[in-house]
Design a protein around this nucleic acid. Structure first.
Lengths: 134, 134
DNA sequence: ATAATCCCTATAGTTAACTCTAGGTCAAGT
DNA sequence: ACTTGACCTAGAGTTAACTATAGGGATTAT
């Protein structure tokens, strides 16, 4: 089973432009072509693109993802590098989660702050808060 | 107690350039100046900057944050808008957390995958995985 | 009083990740 | 045969959020 670039774009929720950009940047050296040059995506290509999206969502830049893709095609000699990379990504995501949770706490505090102010009809209700407005 | 721009930059872990950029974009209309034009930051200004950083970390663009700052200086008539905005930000952060948790699950799976492969000395150990390599 | 160090503005440059346009090929339908 | 619509490449344009530079003023240390 193969898919056209627009089918893949729809499936992965990104644009045809973005997919061609990824290809140009070396993220998809494995995608085959028809004799006339049209890309033919296999299921395994879509799986790989999902990993690429995952790495992107950890905040990894495209150039670094390209490095990973290159390691993949170099075979077992790069297993250690790839493992280390995923450990690093795991740490990065953990840091992001910690950060986001802090953000969430502050946002929740502000929701409370404005709910109280709305009920009182004025922000002045918080003027004497020990903890401060922020 | 007041602080110079470089003191604030150090405290909030951002650059002097960034702070001046925020000011230029209208995020800090409340910061006062000496007669010769040097910015003097108060503690409350630093608190406000922390909120700005919080909003930024929810993915809110600077132009929208500026809108919030404007609401703040318009007083109690904008309490509802500000409350709604924070509810929206809360939803955005919840979505980001859900997304990051999905990412984390995939990363963890990959960590396992590479750990097993490293122990076996080859990625071929996964060739017959039901779930697939990705 | 002069050098160093901080501050300022205005404006130009940078970077990543697309996004779009122009100009062209190709396969299918009528 | 010809139109339609999806595909292609090369390359220009976009956007956000800084980042840096140039040129100049004010304050502090020697």
């Amino acid at each position: 089973m193969t898919y056209s670039i627009s089918e893949v774009a729809k499936e992965l929720n990104l644009t045809v432009y973005a997919l061609r950009y990824y290809d140009k940047e070396g993220l998809m050296p494995f995608v085959e072509r028809t004799p006339s040059g049209t890309r033919l995506f296999k299921d395994s290509d879509i799986d790989a693109l999902k990993i690429i999206q995952c790495l992107k969502s950890t905040g990894m830049p495209i150039k670094d993802i390209k490095g990973f893709i290159e390691w993949c095609s170099e075979g077992d000699s790069t297993l250690q590098q790839r493992y280390d990379m995923f450990l690093e990504r795991k740490a990065a995501v953990e840091a992001q989660l910690a950060e986001l949770n802090k953000t969430m706490a502050l946002i929740n505090h502000k929701c409370d702050y404005y709910m109280t102010a709305l009920n009182a009809g004025t922000e002045n209700i918080h003027k004497n808060d020990k903890i401060g407005n922020f």
